[in-house]
Protein backbone atom coordinates (compact mmCIF):
# COMPACT_ATOMS: atom_id res chain seq x y z
CA UNK A 1 0.00 0.00 0.00
CA UNK A 2 1.51 3.34 -0.97
CA UNK A 3 1.76 6.19 1.50
CA UNK A 4 -1.07 8.27 0.00
CA UNK A 5 -3.52 5.36 0.24
CA UNK A 6 -2.44 4.66 3.80
CA UNK A 7 -3.09 8.30 4.71
CA UNK A 8 -6.50 8.22 2.95
CA UNK A 9 -7.65 5.04 4.70
CA UNK A 10 -6.36 6.30 8.05
CA UNK A 11 -8.24 9.57 7.55
CA UNK A 12 -11.50 7.79 6.62
CA UNK A 13 -11.25 5.37 9.55
CA UNK A 14 -10.38 8.18 11.98
CA UNK A 15 -13.23 10.37 10.80
CA UNK A 16 -15.66 7.43 10.98
CA UNK A 17 -14.63 6.62 14.56
CA UNK A 18 -14.78 10.29 15.56
CA UNK A 19 -18.28 10.57 14.10
CA UNK A 20 -19.52 7.43 15.86
CA UNK A 21 -17.94 8.34 19.21
CA UNK A 22 -19.12 11.95 18.79
CA UNK A 23 -22.73 10.95 18.20
CA UNK A 24 -22.26 8.62 21.17
CA UNK A 25 -22.04 11.74 23.34
CA UNK A 26 -25.79 12.04 22.83
CA UNK A 27 -28.12 9.51 24.44
CA UNK A 28 -29.23 7.90 21.17
CA UNK A 29 -27.42 4.58 20.71
CA UNK A 30 -29.10 2.88 23.66
CA UNK A 31 -32.49 4.32 22.85
CA UNK A 32 -32.31 3.18 19.23
CA UNK A 33 -30.99 -0.36 19.89
CA UNK A 34 -27.53 0.18 18.33
CA UNK A 35 -25.86 -0.59 21.66
CA UNK A 36 -27.87 -3.84 21.82
CA UNK A 37 -25.90 -5.25 18.89
CA UNK A 38 -23.31 -7.69 20.27
CA UNK A 39 -19.91 -6.01 20.30
CA UNK A 40 -21.37 -2.49 20.22
CA UNK A 41 -22.39 -2.20 23.89
CA UNK A 42 -19.60 0.36 24.36
CA UNK A 43 -21.61 2.85 22.25
CA UNK A 44 -23.87 3.46 25.27
CA UNK A 45 -20.98 3.94 27.71
CA UNK A 46 -20.39 7.66 27.81
CA UNK A 47 -16.91 7.64 29.32
CA UNK A 48 -15.69 5.08 26.74
CA UNK A 49 -17.06 7.09 23.81
CA UNK A 50 -15.60 10.21 25.40
CA UNK A 51 -12.09 8.70 25.62
CA UNK A 52 -12.38 7.29 22.08
CA UNK A 53 -13.47 10.68 20.77
CA UNK A 54 -10.37 12.24 22.31
CA UNK A 55 -8.07 9.47 21.02
CA UNK A 56 -9.35 9.74 17.47
CA UNK A 57 -9.31 13.54 17.69
CA UNK A 58 -5.56 13.24 18.39
CA UNK A 59 -5.15 11.12 15.25
CA UNK A 60 -7.43 13.41 13.25
CA UNK A 61 -5.51 16.57 14.18
CA UNK A 62 -2.21 14.87 13.34
CA UNK A 63 -3.54 13.71 9.98
CA UNK A 64 -5.09 16.99 8.86
CA UNK A 65 -1.97 18.87 9.94
CA UNK A 66 0.17 16.41 7.98
CA UNK A 67 -2.06 16.56 4.88
CA UNK A 68 -2.23 20.39 4.94
CA UNK A 69 1.50 20.81 5.43
CA UNK A 70 2.33 18.19 2.83
CA UNK A 71 0.13 19.98 0.31
CA UNK A 72 1.70 23.33 1.14
CA UNK A 73 5.27 22.00 0.83
CA UNK A 74 5.12 19.48 -1.99
CA UNK A 75 1.87 19.65 -3.99
CA UNK A 76 0.96 23.32 -4.09
CA UNK A 77 2.40 23.89 -7.57
CA UNK A 78 1.01 20.69 -9.10
CA UNK A 79 -2.53 20.71 -7.68
CA UNK A 80 -5.03 23.48 -6.94
CA UNK A 81 -7.77 23.44 -4.29
CA UNK A 82 -11.26 23.25 -5.81
CA UNK A 83 -14.41 24.94 -4.46
CA UNK A 84 -15.37 21.63 -2.82
CA UNK A 85 -11.90 21.57 -1.28
CA UNK A 86 -12.31 25.06 0.15
CA UNK A 87 -15.78 24.25 1.54
CA UNK A 88 -14.50 20.99 3.04
CA UNK A 89 -11.45 22.69 4.54
CA UNK A 90 -13.58 25.44 6.04
CA UNK A 91 -15.91 22.89 7.63
CA UNK A 92 -13.02 20.77 8.92
CA UNK A 93 -11.41 23.89 10.40
CA UNK A 94 -14.71 24.83 12.09
CA UNK A 95 -15.05 21.29 13.47
CA UNK A 96 -11.46 21.30 14.77
CA UNK A 97 -11.67 24.75 16.30
CA UNK A 98 -14.96 24.13 18.11
CA UNK A 99 -13.66 20.72 19.21
CA UNK A 100 -10.50 22.23 20.66
CA UNK A 101 -12.52 24.88 22.50
CA UNK A 102 -14.79 22.16 23.93
CA UNK A 103 -11.72 20.23 25.11
CA UNK A 104 -10.46 23.39 26.82
CA UNK A 105 -13.93 23.82 28.36
CA UNK A 106 -13.61 20.37 29.96
CA UNK A 107 -10.66 21.41 32.09
CA UNK A 108 -11.44 22.52 35.61
CA UNK A 109 -12.39 26.15 35.89
CA UNK A 110 -14.93 28.47 34.39
CA UNK A 111 -13.50 29.61 31.07
CA UNK A 112 -16.46 30.24 28.78
CA UNK A 113 -19.92 31.60 29.37
CA UNK A 114 -22.76 29.08 29.30
CA UNK A 115 -24.43 30.59 26.21
CA UNK A 116 -21.11 30.43 24.34
CA UNK A 117 -20.87 26.70 25.20
CA UNK A 118 -24.36 26.08 23.79
CA UNK A 119 -23.25 27.71 20.52
CA UNK A 120 -20.03 25.67 20.51
CA UNK A 121 -21.99 22.42 20.95
CA UNK A 122 -24.45 23.31 18.18
CA UNK A 123 -21.76 24.52 15.74
CA UNK A 124 -19.67 21.39 16.41
CA UNK A 125 -22.66 19.14 15.72
CA UNK A 126 -23.71 21.22 12.69
CA UNK A 127 -20.18 21.13 11.23
CA UNK A 128 -19.94 17.33 11.35
CA UNK A 129 -23.37 16.94 9.73
CA UNK A 130 -22.37 19.37 6.95
CA UNK A 131 -19.05 17.53 6.45
CA UNK A 132 -20.89 14.23 6.06
CA UNK A 133 -23.29 15.83 3.55
CA UNK A 134 -20.42 17.50 1.66
CA UNK A 135 -18.55 14.18 1.54
CA UNK A 136 -21.61 12.42 0.18
CA UNK A 137 -22.14 15.18 -2.40
CA UNK A 138 -18.49 14.97 -3.56
CA UNK A 139 -18.68 11.18 -3.79
CA UNK A 140 -21.94 11.13 -5.77
CA UNK A 141 -20.93 13.90 -8.19
CA UNK A 142 -17.25 12.89 -8.31
CA UNK A 143 -16.03 16.26 -7.04
CA UNK A 144 -12.36 16.27 -6.04
CA UNK A 145 -10.89 18.54 -3.39
CA UNK A 146 -7.67 18.88 -5.41
CA UNK A 147 -7.17 18.89 -9.16
CA UNK A 148 -4.52 19.70 -11.76
CA UNK A 149 -4.53 23.35 -12.86
Amino acid sequence: MNQNKLISYSYIFTFFMMTISGFGQMPIFKRYYMADIPGLEWLAKYYITHYLHYLFAIMFLSLISYISMEYFLTKREKLIITTSGYVGSLLLSTLSLTGILLVIRNFSGHLFSSSFIVYLDLIHLGAVILILMTGLFCMVFNKKWLEKP
Binding site: Y47, H50, Y51, Y54, L55, A57, I58, M59, L61, S62, L63, I64, S65, Y66, I67, S68, M69, E70, F72, L73, I100, V103, N106, F107, S108
Partner: peptide, 19 residues
Protein backbone atom coordinates in the same frame (compact mmCIF):
# COMPACT_ATOMS: atom_id res chain seq x y z
CA UNK B 1 -9.74 12.56 29.24
CA UNK B 2 -8.02 15.75 30.37
CA UNK B 3 -4.68 13.91 30.37
CA UNK B 4 -5.39 12.81 26.79
CA UNK B 5 -6.09 16.43 25.93
CA UNK B 6 -2.41 17.25 26.42
CA UNK B 7 -1.58 14.85 23.59
CA UNK B 8 -4.25 16.53 21.49
CA UNK B 9 -2.41 19.86 21.67
CA UNK B 10 0.82 18.21 20.55
CA UNK B 11 -0.85 16.30 17.68
CA UNK B 12 -0.88 19.14 15.06
CA UNK B 13 2.83 19.76 15.65
CA UNK B 14 3.52 16.05 15.13
CA UNK B 15 1.63 16.16 11.81
CA UNK B 16 3.50 19.26 10.65
CA UNK B 17 6.83 17.75 11.70
CA UNK B 18 6.09 14.52 9.78
CA UNK B 19 5.23 16.49 6.61
Amino acid sequence: ANNLAAAMFIAPFAGVAAA
